[in-house]
């Protein structure tokens, strides 16, 4: 039985089909933002579902495909930040539980990737989200600023600091491993 059958009759068939298409197309993007930010698989799924359920309620307001992606990124970003603020917890780094990579290509250095994921998880919430949006979503500082609702100059400064911090920590940890 199609899951679309369960969607209320008030929604048009086209809207229901659109919604399913949107969920299929963007689930990896929304889930990945939550996963890279929260590092908790169950919580990331919960947040991602909430984002899509909110979209389902507001589907009429979405203008086009480009707007959907922008809308989903923005809502996912704020939901993640709200989660961390509400619980006042740091990200749980349970990387053994890491989900499979969507990309087919294998990682060149899986250990380095895990180290970087751990270091990203240790960043302050806003800087962490900036790094996720910059390097997962390839967003430029202007887009990140718009998504987070802060000045672009602030984004550039904090991204620069966060990168510097990550580089230093990564180098230090690699030196410790090699010594």
């Amino acid at each position: 039985m199609s899951h679309l059958a369960a969607i209320p009759a008030t929604a048009t068939t086209a809207a229901r089909a659109d919604f399913e298409q949107i969920v299929r197309e963007h689930s990896a993007m929304v889930f990945s933002i939550a996963w890279h930010y929260l590092h908790d698989r169950a919580l990331a799924e919960e947040v991602a579902q909430d984002v899509f359920l909110q979209l389902h309620r507001d589907l009429d307001r979405v203008e086009d495909a480009g707007h959907v992606k922008h809308w989903l990124r923005r809502v996912a970003t704020h939901r993640c930040i709200d989660q961390v603020r509400a619980r006042k917890t740091r990200a749980q780094v349970a990387l053994e539980d890491a989900p499979p990579l969507a990309a087919v290509e294998r990682e060149a250095d899986p250990l380095m990737s895990r180290l970087l994921q751990r270091l990203v998880a240790s960043l302050p919430p806003q800087a962490r989200m900036m790094i996720v949006l910059r390097y997962q979503e390839e967003m430029d500082p202007m887009e990140i600023a718009e998504t987070l609702g802060i000045p672009a100059r602030t984004v550039r400064t904090r991204l620069h600091r966060a990168l510097h911090l990550l580089r230093e920590k990564a180098a230090r940890q690699q030196r410790e491993v090699n010594s």
């Binding site: 899951h3 679309l4 369960a6 969607i7 919604f19 399913e20 969920v23 299929r24 689930s27 990896a28 993007m29 889930f31 990945s32 996963w35 890279h36 698989r41 799924e45 991602a48 579902q49 899509f52 359920l53 890491a98 989900p99 499979p100 990579l101 969507a102 990309a103 990682e107 060149a108 250095d109 380095m112 990737s113 895990r114 970087l116 994921q117 990203v120 790094i131 996720v132 390097y135 997962q136």
Partner: peptide
């Protein structure tokens, strides 16, 4: 590379719908 997109858990789309 470390922050490449990951797939949601199996059945995510169906559960969401």
């Amino acid at each position: 590379r470390a922050l490449r997109p990951v797939d949601p858990p199996a059945g995510f789309v169906e559960r969401t719908l």
